[in-house]
Simulated scan of single mutants.
Amino acid sequence: MTASALTRPGERDRLPVKLTQIDWRFVGLLCVIAGIGCAMLYSVAGESWEPWAIKHLIRFGACVVMLLVLAMMDPRYWFRMAWPVYGIGLLLLVAVEVAGDTRMGATRWLEIGPFSFQPSEIMKIGVVLALARYYHGATAQEARLHWKLIFPVLIIGAPFLLVAHQPDLGTAMLIGLTGAAIMFLAGLDWKVIAGVTIPALIAIPGYVMFGMHGYQRDRVLTFLSPESDPSGTGYHITQSKIALGSGGLLGKGYGLGSQSQLEFLPEKQTDFIFAAVSEEFGFVGSVTILLCYIGVVLIALRIASLSHSHFGRLASAGVTATFALYVLINAAMVMGLAPVVGVPMPLMSYGGTVMVTVMIGFGLVMSTRVHRYAELPKGHGLF
């Protein structure tokens, strides 16, 4: 029997008992993935802790502590914070439109004193919390096929359009696909799914040609034919494929990746770190890392399924969907199976904002596990 089954409800709130409910296998897998990321950042920097590996390690250590603290939070706090977090995130996205910092042709950042951050990262959590809160109070009919579906569509659509306008197509895709996954898990009718998906697929060519920015269009067209401009728009994908192929079965060896060490591989510390892993550790190393990611996703989904509250189930599943989409899109991008959209490999790529967002989300997942017997108030999730 578990510790929760052997203790009375009041005793489950004690910190020592809560700590026994942490899934340490899950935390261990996160540490393995981040540790591999740190080792690769050390390697691609020419076997130096600076400028990436040491910062990555310190950030992750702080994020693990944050995850454990958030895991102790009662789900009622997450429930109450859902609309405020979403509202603040939406206001910050509007602030980006008005006074955002522009870098490399995109306006995605807000600067507050010495700090710079992307509000779109907040919205990844905000959308998950808001949708879980809404569906917690919705009836099965409202989740399946009802005029009130306009509310979750607006919850997803507003940040999607604001982020896409920055432009940040990768993050917009994550927000849209995560929202769609939550709506599906909540019980959305197949008729609605087909009614939205088919027109969207038909509209894609027109959007690519007339709705995208020039560089975004180039990325899509380059994805279809990278060999047409191998030293220009196709450079990223071409070099990534060379790194993947040259690794072979077992790789060239740690620190011996010529594509990354000789600066041929672009963004080797962020978007294309998985290509560097494949070059140094080959097919076997790449599959091992992907299995670690799959393990994280499966454990998180198991945790979501054990929650007694609809909010906990949907929020945890939504966070897991975001994480899985990060991995899927980045791996496909590196292998040339998707356009380059600037989505990093979570916990491996260098970058503090994405790591903090992912670990906050997993703090919510672990809170769901620790407090899986918690009952949340009913009533309509929007009002």
Rank of each mutant, 00 (worst) to 15 (best):
I122K: 04
S246M: 10
A140H: 08
V354I: 06
L291N: 04
I294R: 03
R133A: 07
A45N: 00
V69K: 07
F323E: 00
K148Y: 06
G232N: 14
D229Q: 08
T238R: 11
L256P: 00
L70P: 04
G187I: 10
A5G: 13
A338C: 12
I150C: 08
A99P: 00
D74Q: 12
R108F: 06
I294N: 03
I155R: 06
F274T: 14
I273L: 01
A180G: 10
L41Q: 05
M81A: 15
G248S: 06
V354M: 05
G248W: 00
I112G: 02
E50C: 01
D229T: 15
A39I: 13
G10N: 13
L185M: 09
E50H: 09
A331E: 00
R144W: 07
V127I: 15
V85M: 11
L290S: 14
G282R: 05
P119N: 05
V220R: 08
A130V: 13
V220K: 09
F160I: 02
F264H: 13
F79H: 10
L256M: 05
L291S: 08
I156R: 00
S4E: 02
A331P: 01
P16M: 03
S228L: 01
A140S: 13
V370W: 03
K124G: 05
V128W: 10
I150F: 08
G211C: 03
F151K: 08
S286Y: 04
Y235F: 13
I303Y: 03
